[in-house]
Design a protein around this nucleic acid. Structure first.
Length: 229
DNA sequence: CCAGACGTTGTT
DNA sequence: GTCTGG
DNA sequence: CCAGACGTTGTT
DNA sequence: GTCTGG
C-alpha cells in the first residue's frame, strides 16, 4: 500500500519539471514543499489537466462528494487498481476525476516479528515522478468545498515484495497526460498504465525509524540508514 | 420499489 | 481497544 | 502510515 | 452518485 511518501523538490522546481502552473482557484499555501514525510490527512500537491497542466491541493484521504460529513471513519487513502471501475466510491472519480499525485517515493514498513522496519522506495529512472490518483470534491453548506484524493495501488513488483505486497502506481512522464485527461475515458488504455509499472525500475533502502513519527520531516527521512535497535 | 452502504490493509 | 492528529 | 490520547466532577 | 440487499 502507500501510507506515507516524500516530495523532495520545491514548488518552483516542480513547476519546471512538470511544466505546470498553480491553478487560479486553489490555494497552495497549506501544501508544504519539499516534504520528506507526508502523512494521510495532509494537504498534498496534485496535477490536473484543464487545457494546461495545473497544480492544485487536495487532502489525502478520499471524501466522496455524497458524504454527509467531510470525513470518513476510515479514510480512503488508497484505492485498489483492480476495483476502480466497480466500487461505488471510486467509479465516478475513475471516469472523470483522475490526477497525478506529485511524489518521489514512498515508505513501507516491513514486519519482522514484532519489529517494523521502514524502507524508502522510489523510481530509479526519471527525475520527478508521480503516482496515479483519483480525486473528488465535497461541498458543505456554506461555500466550503474540500478536494480530496486517493492514491492507486497495484501488486508490488517482485523486487519489493519482500517488504510489502502492494505499491502505488507510478506514472511515467509519458503516461501522465493520458491519465489526467478527463475529457475521455478508455478503461483499457488507463489500466495499461498499471501494467507498465512492471517496467518501472525501483530502488529501495532502509531508512531511520525516526520517520515513524510524522513530525520528523527532514532530508534524513529518505537517506539510507543502518540497522537500528 | 426503497433503504442502506459505499474502503484498504493486514491479521485471524 | 479505538479514535484523532500529524 | 504511526504516535499519542483517551474522562467527569468540583474546586482552585 | 451508484450499487447491493431485502
Amino acid at each position: 500500500m502507500c501510507g506515507r511518501f516524500a516530495v523532495k523538490s520545491s514548488l518552483e522546481q516542480l513547476k519546471k519539471d512538470f511544466g505546470a502552473e498553480e491553478s487560479e482557484n486553489s490555494d497552495l499555501s497549506s501544501v508544504s514543499l519539499p516534504s520528506f514525510n507526508i502523512a494521510p490527512g495532509s494537504d498534498i500537491l496534485i496535477l490536473v489537466f484543464e487545457g494546461l497542466r495545473k497544480f492544485k491541493k487536495a487532502k489525502w484521504g478520499l471524501v466522496p462528494s455524497w458524504s454527509k460529513e467531510p470525513k470518513t471513519p476510515y479514510s480512503m487513502i488508497n484505492a485498489r487498481a483492480e476495483s476502480l471501475a466497480e466500487k461505488p466510491s471510486f467509479s465516478l472519480p475513475f471516469r472523470k476525476r483522475r490526477c497525478a499525485v506529485i511524489a518521489d517515493g514512498y515508505f513501507e514498513w516491513k514486519k519482522e516479528g514484532k519489529e517494523k522496519i521502514p524502507y524508502y522506495i522510489y523510481a530509479k529512472n526519471g527525475k520527478s515522478s508521480a503516482f496515479a490518483g483519483i480525486f473528488d470534491i465535497w461541498s458543505g453548506e456554506d461555500e466550503k468545498t474540500i478536494m480530496s484524493v486517493a492514491i492507486i495501488t497495484i501488486e508490488a513488483q517482485n523486487e519489493t515484495r519482500f517488504i510489502h505486497n502492494r505499491m502505488p502506481a507510478f506514472l511515467g512522464q509519458k503516461d501522465i497526460d493520458m491519465w489526467i485527461d478527463n475529457s475521455s475515458y478508455n478503461r483499457e488504455a488507463l489500466e495499461s498504465v498499471f501494467e507498465k509499472n512492471r517496467e518501472t525500475t525501483l530502488a529501495f533502502h532502509r531508512v531511520t525509524k525516526k520517520i515513524n513519527s510524522p513530525a520528523f520531516n527532514l532530508p534524513e527521512c529518505i537517506e539510507p540508514a543502518e540497522k537500528e535497535n
